[in-house]
């Protein structure tokens, strides 16, 4: 049985995946030896649904700015279209010979191909959504680096005004994403690192305030204040980098999250 990466994809494809698995078992146990009924209508319905999905997919690929999505979608279209053609060929062959064994195998291959092709297509699109969250996270990472140049209270106020909405936006998106994942370890990783960031953001601001105050009072204790601030920036950057890494993992990367 395939493992689906997100709950949306799982909800769509898991019931069909289970049915196809049962079909494969029946075929392997040679329990499907009776004459096959005319499958023209259900096969035509699949073909029409494939055409509609591919059309929406092509519209998406044409309208997106995501170059990776543009590249990755066409092979997924080919996958579902070839599988649909395979089903049509099998149905025609079975109409001529309702006992044809190669045609039955072709039917099963076609059904499996529709399943994996649809999964690939949805995964391409899902990864594009992930890249949008990654862009937000990289923005936060860049902004964290700015904290090292803040040396007066006025700049600190501006920094906090900009960091807070960026951090909240990322936390919301990452939390929503964690709820979508079927892989518990990946979901927990995202939640833990987001919680770390929520906890350390006020600590960062506090450390920056101490650094700014030290500078204002003549600079005694500057090194310690700077080291403390940099340590917190390092911890927060690590959390954001981990979020970026985990966001890009798929269910196949089970061992990546140690």
């Amino acid at each position: 049985m395939p493992v689906f990466h997100t709950k949306t994809i799982e909800a769509i494809l898991d019931p069909v995946a289970q049915q196809v698995s049962q079909l494969v078992i029946l075929h392997e146990e040679a329990q499907d030896g009776n004459a096959m009924p005319d499958l023209s209508n259900p096969v035509m319905a699949v073909s029409a649904a494939v055409q509609n999905l591919v059309k929406v997919g092509k519209d998406t690929a044409n309208s997106t700015d995501d170059k990776i999505l543009k590249q990755e979608m066409p092979p997924a279209f080919t996958g579902v279209e070839e599988s649909s053609n395979k089903l049509a060929e099998a149905a025609m062959e079975l109409k001529r010979d309702p006992y044809s064994s190669p045609a039955r195998k072709k039917l099963i291959d076609g059904a499996r191909g529709i399943l994996s092709g649809t999964s690939d297509l949805l995964l391409c699109f899902d990864q594009s959504e992930v890249r949008k969250i990654v862009r937000v996270a990289k923005g936060v990472l860049e902004y964290l680096a700015v904290s090292e140049v803040v040396e007066c209270l006025e700049d600190l106020v501006t920094f906090v005004k900009n960091l807070s909405p960026g951090m909240a936006n990322m936390a919301n998106k990452v939390t929503s994403r964690s709820k979508e994942l079927t892989h518990t370890a990946h979901a927990n990783g995202l939640i833990n690192h987001t919680e770390n960031l929520k906890r350390t953001t006020p600590v960062l601001v506090s450390s920056m305030k101490i650094f700014v105050t030290v500078l204002k009072k003549g600079g005694a204790g500057r090194d310690e204040a700077q080291q403390n601030r940099n340590y917190i920036i390092g911890c927060m950057s690590h959390d954001v980098n981990e979020i970026i890494r985990i966001l890009q993992l798929t269910s196949a990367d089970d061992d990546e999250l140690s």
Binding site: I12, Q19, H27
Partner: peptide, 29 residues
């Protein structure tokens, strides 16, 4: 487009499910 992709994928999954049922119906007779 995300909603439309998901909708069309659901419709394809339903059509595939009906096809598999038609094949299985024969096999289970």
């Amino acid at each position: 487009n995300a909603g439309e992709m998901v909708k069309q994928a659901k419709l394809l999954a339903m059509a595939t499910s009906q096809l598999v049922n038609a094949i299985k119906g024969e096999a289970e007779d």
